[in-house]
Design a protein around this nucleic acid. Sequence first.
DNA 1: ATTTTTAACTTGTATATACAAGTTGTAGCT
DNA 2: AGCTACAACTTGTATATACAAGTTAAAAAT
Lengths: 238, 238
Amino acid sequence: MKSTPRYKAVHQYIKKLIISGELVEGALLPSENELCERFQVTRPTVRQALTSLVQDGYIYKHHGKGSIVASQHKTLGLLSFKGFSEVLKETPEAVDTKVLEGPKVQDWPEDFFYPLSSKVLKQGCLFIKRLRLVNASPVMLEYTWLPNKNLTGFTEITFDRHSLFGTLGSKYHIEVSSVDQHIRAIVANGKTAPALDLEVGAPLLHIYRKYGTNQKDFNLYSSLFCNTDKYALSSEFK
Amino acid sequence: MKSTPRYKAVHQYIKKLIISGELVEGALLPSENELCERFQVTRPTVRQALTSLVQDGYIYKHHGKGSIVASQHKTLGLLSFKGFSEVLKETPEAVDTKVLEGPKVQDWPEDFFYPLSSKVLKQGCLFIKRLRLVNASPVMLEYTWLPNKNLTGFTEITFDRHSLFGTLGSKYHIEVSSVDQHIRAIVANGKTAPALDLEVGAPLLHIYRKYGTNQKDFNLYSSLFCNTDKYALSSEFK
DNA sequence: ATTTTTAACTTGTATATACAAGTTGTAGCT
DNA sequence: AGCTACAACTTGTATATACAAGTTAAAAAT
């Protein structure tokens, strides 16, 4: 049984201080040398802990000044093609998924937002409707459709516990390889407002996505409704 | 004039190989020790370069096996988030830019949405306010700030005719190299609604952007308000 | 009292070394 | 031919040291 690496212990200790509020936004952390003494580790070890705190968004560093607690401005890196599970493991808050419907076999919706071949239309689709929560508060309503294509046992899987992309990869050898998305601002309507605990008319970010995979004629489609009041969506390109 | 840190030179060299296609997805990079010999640096320096390549999504690491080129989803996406013309480049319609204010020298706004060093704050900023139109209809209100840093003649340029990024590149040798953005859905208020010919309360896509450049302490900042009624923003990652 | 300089402090970059833990290929055994 | 053990290789974690560059407070100069 391996022990926790020291840099991770330091990272987790500081993270806890920030999450608990003991270290508030804008607060200057002890210097690297002070942290070395406090944790009885060398500076590269401290730096590795701080680097990963920077990556996770808890702090930022200022050359010559120190490490400062970042605003716990909530962002979700959802503009990349990653799935929700993967993205949300980077946020400090408690995340949860609730399956509202499915997985179930059904017909493709009429006037589907991406064109479908008649063959795919005829086969019908698998549909999942999920609610994504952060700190028990709904932030995203997610509808997902995928072709009904002999995915044995798919409708028995509980996707509140399992990542869809992860499951497709490990169980069905379907790898998501591309995404095409369209983003708009809309207002919450009679369907989306109650699901997201919002007033009708509140602004929502809406994203249509078409995911390409390693299998020909097998694309996934999502329609996402995001309440960006507390959590902006973010992306970063270098 | 500082030289490029070694870890950054290694990072950029490998990044170029990946972008150019010389290193293809799934390819195993030379081992850390081999890279040390090849670049004549020590292993922590190589590791720092590799760590930042991991962070940027170009590679992933496998303990005991090596560093592997990741699928290039982000790489293509890098090139499509540069400026307005790129974002809307798919549209065949007539696009136009109207400068509403600036370029002018002013103070940085209070409570600016990205943290600024006291040095940059003291210098003030250059500000431009533009309206982007498609088929003579306003689709985006764009505020741009950049550090007031001896850009000779900048306030004389008419940015309705000239691309900001293009001008920075050709005239001032400032290349935009990264972007960090946060996206929300908001409602149009008393300032944004009239500029975009909308009712107060209409949904708007709001984007904060911080562009990194090749010059230290020279970042550009934008706040974009997009009417996505007719034109969704789209992105594609492969 | 104000401004400038300097020292002490901070983070950033880099070399050097060592051991731990995972991977893979080869040799030896059955 | 298949399995096991081991060596060589890989990345992961950590200590130790040194210099570069940014920040800030105190001291010195005006």
